[in-house]
Structures are given as C-alpha cells and as structure tokens.
Design a protein around this nucleic acid. Structure first.
Lengths: 232, 232
DNA sequence: CGGTTTCTTGAATCGAATCAAGCCGCGTGG
DNA sequence: CCACGCGGCTTGATTCGATTCAAGAAACCG
C-alpha cells in the first residue's frame, strides 16, 4: 500500500465516481488537508448503527456491507458499497446518528473526511449540493425499488436478483466468476431470508445450470434465465 | 374552496412544512407566478410511474398514496403523502421519469410548480439545496427502515406498524379514530400482503381489543400492545 | 330494489422457517 | 503427518405462517 505518501484528493481518481468531483480545487485542497486514510480488515466495522459520525468515509478499495439489525435479531443488508462510494453522508447531512452499520466484506482502504469540510462546501457551493442531491435521489429510487421487490417477490426471485445485482455492480473476472464473494449467510442477509432457504435455492440454480460454483466463488452461466425468473 | 383567488406561495402556510421555506421572497414570488392549483378527486392519478414530470406537486389538502406496480401485478404502496409534502421532487432532480405513481386517496388540492423554478433556485441558492437535501436524507432513512421491516417482520407486525404509522403521520380525531381511512385492500398494499391475510389480522386485533372499528373508520385502543408486538 | 363492490370467514395448499443431522475444508496441535 | 475440532455448507423432515380459492354477509349505489 502506498501510505508512505498518501494520495491527495485533488489527484485521486476515485473522486470522479462520487459527488466530490463537484468540489472546486481549493475546496478539495482543504478537504485533503484534513482527511486521513484508514485501513479495515474483513469483518471490521467502519461504523455501527447508532454511532455519531464526525465525517464521511470515501471507499478507495474493498467492499462494505451496509446493514441494520431488526427487532428479531437478524441483520438485513440494505446495500453494498464499493470503490468511490461515500458512506455516512446521510447521517452527516441530517446530523443524526448512523442508521446503518458499515462492515468491511473485504480488506478495505477508506478515506475519512471530517464533516466540517463537507458541510461548509455544501453551504457555499450549490453545485456540490446539487451533485450530492442527485446521488441521494438515485439512492432513494433504488431504496424504493428494493421495498417493492422485498414485499412482492418470492425468495427465489430475490436470490436471482441478488446475483444480478452482484454482477452489475461489482462485475466478474475473466473466467466469469463474480468479483464479489459473499458467504451464504451474507447472501441470505441481502435477500432477507433464512440461510438454509437461500442455500437450497442456490443448489436449485446449480442443478438448472443457471449458475456454477468453484470453491467459494460463484459464476452466472445463464443470466437470461435469472432475469426471466425475476420478471415473472 | 378559495379558488376565486388563489393563495400566493409567499402567504401559503403550507410551505413552512417543506423545503420551500428555504426560498427567498423573490424566488418564491417567481415560483408563485408560474404555479397552478389543481384539484384531484379520490382515485385520480396525480402522476403515474414512468411519466415524465415537468415540475413538482405541493400537497395543500388531502392525502396521496405513492405506489409502484411489481412484476407480479400487485401494487405496493411505498409511502403516503399529506399536507405540505412535495411530490415528484426526486424525479425532477434526477431528470428521470417518475418511479412511483401518486394516486389521491382523498379529494385533494395540489399546487403544481414547474421544474424551472425549482431547478434555478437549486443552482443559485445553496440554502434551498441543503434544505431539499435534508428532506431527501430523511426520506432515505425512512426507506431503509422500511426495507428492514419488510424483510424481517411478520405480516402481523407490519399491520401493527401500519396502524402506528397512520396514527403518527395523520393523527386521530376527537373520538380517537384515525383521520386517514384506507380500504382493506389499501392497507394490504401498504403492508405488502394478500387482502384476506390483512383482514384476518385486523379482526384478530379487534378481538384482542387493540383496535376498534366504526363504519370504515378505525381507532387504536391499545397502542402499547401494538408497539410491543412490533418490537418482539 | 337488484346489482356491485367491499368485507369477512373457512378450508386447502403452498412456500419458507425451523429443527436436526451429516459433510466438507481447513487450521491446530499432538 | 495425521487426528481432531470447528465453522461454513448441504440436505431432509417437520412445522408454521401466509396465500389462495371459495362462498356468504354487509354496505353502497344507481
């Protein structure tokens, strides 16, 4: 890792993927002066639900699951964040404790940006505010769609959708295996179901030759079948 | 109705409840000059999913359900909007077709505000942008919570939650009956379940004396019991 | 008043959760 | 190097909750 000299935000390519690109050079410099780079290992918490956040986290590498504990004691993964995503924005903007926990699924490299830099820019640079707004609008639309899927689709459809989501958002390697590898339990926490139910459906998919497995890695073989299932 | 002379936005008390209050006097005047007042009858669509919106709708009176059709053909009500809520914001900000349909549950009075007024102010007045952002952040938190509830709670818990939601957001009259009256089918579309299942649970609640009915109106008698059920 | 829609209840069926047991891969320590 | 234990994975059998189908009662409207 190149922490002998940390990358400055101004030069960081990652920021092209998120709302920080709407900041001016000077704003970015100020932010860069206050930011710190942090490393998390698989399973570490970046923050946990209920925690007060003093800034936002910009993911440089690795993947984080954003989840919430429900009253029955089970974790529900609400979304997965990767390179370029900002975590904790919502909490900082509404000045409330975090609503979700962010846990590293992989080893991660994350920049912590104190909230002052964000809030000041938000108030002075409406370009930036609108850019953040656009991202939040997009997240909201996705969340609404998830609500509809969660309440109206069968577990089987939701598992299929989870695979498609993993493919579309995190891609696959040259051999067709999904870049993102989740444990069975994590998949069921995305889908919102019991682990065994989820496992059973995965093995059905294998029998149908819609997906295959090699070690922990999974690959989608028949994407169309999965899509058809979701839309039926 | 006082449409012999429409209320000007500057004098409209409703706007105190939404992000329009962060607009300056002049901005508000401009908006007021372009706005039109519209009336919708119970069951009318203010807009439907997939429709391109040319502005936002500010609810002055009545209640609207925001719902989406899922692939299985059932409607899922994602949220309910009342006096002071702005509809179609998200769509206008991200310049995408509406993701949800807005249908009047009651007779409604709604102001239509062309998007130019909104977008111009957004770009020039960062106060306004931040205010909109704060509202959107709040909506996003609520949506995330709904995702968790939908996927982890039983139908019974969700029905209880729906009643509490109706009480907290729309209140009750002097006799303790909920101001918002939904048909059984609408309640099940909120809860995301079959109408009969929902009816059955409502009659259970009645037997337990947690709620009572008079005509179409429902009243919560034992709020604590409902809350306990949700948190169990 | 008949016809329609909404509400209600019952019984059968289906999907998913739960409980229980065995398996596999892996790391540890004898 | 193998035995052991552990955690993650897999499968089967049972139970439970929710949906569906069906049919009757009540409210609603022209």
């Amino acid at each position: 890792m190149d922490d002998y000299q940390e990358t400055r935000c101004e030069q960081c390519v990652i920021r092209q993927f998120n709302s920080l690109r709407a900041m001016s050079k000077e704003e970015l410099k100020k932010v860069s002066d206050t930011k710190t780079t942090q490393y998390f290992k698989k399973g570490d918490a970046i923050f946990t639900e209920g925690e007060k956040l003093n800034g936002v986290f910009c993911v440089r590498d690795g993947i984080s699951k954003l989840s919430k504990l429900s009253s029955n004691g089970k974790d529900q993964i609400v979304k997965l964040a990767t390179k370029g995503h900002l975590l904790g924005q919502r909490s900082v903007i509404s000045n409330e404790p975090a609503n979700l926990s962010a846990i590293a699924v992989n080893d991660m490299q994350v920049c912590f940006i104190p909230k002052e830099g964000i809030l000041n820019t938000l108030n002075s640079n409406s370009n930036f505010a609108v850019e953040v707004l656009r991202h939040m609008a997009h997240d909201l639309k996705e969340a609404d769609d998830v609500i509809v899927n969660m309440s109206q689709q069968t577990v089987k459809q939701r598992v299929a959708e989870a695979f498609l989501y993993m493919k579309n958002n995190f891609g696959e390697d040259d051999k067709g295996f999904l870049n993102l590898t989740l444990s069975r339990e994590e998949i069921s926490n995305v889908v919102g179901t019991a682990t065994e139910s989820c496992i059973r459906i995965i093995s059905e998919f294998k029998k149908e030759n819609w997906i295959k497995a090699s070690g922990k890695k999974l690959a989608i073989i028949n994407e169309k079948a999965l899509i058809d299932l979701v839309n039926s």
